[in-house]
Write a protein that binds this DNA or RNA. Sequence first.
RNA 1: GGCGGGGUAGCCAAGUGGUAAGGUCGCGGUCUGCAAAACCGCUAUUCGCGGGUUCGAUUCCCGCCCCCGCCUCCA
Length: 470
Amino acid sequence: MRDVSTLLDMANVNMALRNRKTGFDRDSSFGKSDRDDRLSQVCAIAHVKVLPIQSRSFPFLSGPHFLTDGIVDDKTIRGAREAKIPLRKFTEQFKEAFFEDIETLRIKRADEFPAATDQLYIDKMIEMIAILISRGFAYQAEDKSVYFRINKFPGYGRLAHFDLTQLQSTGRVKHDEYDKEHIGDFALWKAWDEEDGDVGWESPWGRGRPGWHIECSAMATALLGEQIDIHCGGVDNIFPHHEAEIAQAEGVTGKKFVRYWLHCAHLLVDGQKMSKSLGNFYTLPDLLEKGYTGREIRYALMRVHYRAPLNFTWGGMNEARESLGRIDDWLARLRETAAEKIDKEKNTTHPDQQFEQALDDDLNISSALGFLFESIRETNRAMDRGELDSASANSWLNWWERVNSVLDLETEAEVVVPAEVAQFAKDRENARREKNWKRGDELRDRISALGWEVRDTKDGQKLTPRGRSG
RNA sequence: GGCGGGGUAGCCAAGUGGUAAGGUCGCGGUCUGCAAAACCGCUAUUCGCGGGUUCGAUUCCCGCCCCCGCCUCCA
């Protein structure tokens, strides 16, 4: 066990949730086409690509981690105004949706869910900005906003490998530029304007609100200290957001802010960006409605390395379902073997450390799952031959407990067989005893029509819900 | 244009300077009354393309092509 602190950047998720709950269909107003399509990519089903990494896939690491909740941006403020409800209440619904989703996907809860709008953190942000100004890293411009002076921070651009002199304006920025010393200077404190309505906080620089980037730096250092071990986030946030976080934190502390960055690749749907206009825009509730379970979605999203783009397809969902079924059947069989209590002179097999080793290697989930399935085949083969003793079966089950503490893929509660299905099964058993195959097959069809699969084993019939959902 | 990530069988995907894990789909077999599950076998002479280094490259180098993302206050 190593003690690490981790931070997941929620900037993406915030946008995602807004899409999910409110169905905002914003216009591209910043000159870059596909603006909304791009936003949509990080909607509900996308964010889990990042989350399991942060929350559960550090199997053998412990320590505090948290999710930041920084939503004091223009669109949120506008949304709250249009909905005529207070900002806090407005953002609450996104949080609720978010918690529903992480529940569905079995994502381990973070230790903290700080809110950027808490006075505690606002104070921290103000404190940091004051230090940055005193050290020459920031200045208040004529528009009353406070900006970070990137020329004062030589490391700015290093994370994204950007040469600042080469930066081109995309034309997306519509104002502010004349007040800044350098086009790349970013806002630490945005002066209040009419659009903000009643959203604002008092500061030494006047009423206003925090810049987007400072929220994360402030909450991160407040909760995890001046230096954190692992910072997760989407690749699209490397620049400018993560770059800015480094500049702010290191400008204040003079210490290296983050040891490792984990940047998650994007999600595609059917090989394309997810977008409403393409008709491939899905939310988690959409998938549940289609009959897929949380663990199936979890598996489908989890099995690809975080740094590789994940292409979401229905074929992929079915593959996830089948793969999970294979695990389920293996576990059921292993448990029976473990319960046999027959310890003949059999070959004893032991799991080894490959699963952990794979995850230790930059979270190589595909390699880890590969080892899991190899193990499944080997133990199944041993059980076919009657060569797996109960002690071995138990040690494999213990191993699975460890593996599953990371994967969290087991079915939930015992599946209850409906009375009707149970009755058909009972009738079928009688029919088969009398070798009335026709009647037996007919009953099998009826059971099948009710969504259950019946298998004949040497220990009698086994009933499984079709699709093996759980 | 610059930077980053990807391009491996029908699909998903690992991997290494020494001859391609695993999942899924499909086909054949064992088992079964028939199935299902499980197991066995088959399914990439080949790893985007073209050069080069090497005894040998999918893996290293050079050039090129395709996809995705970022390039400043959108979150």
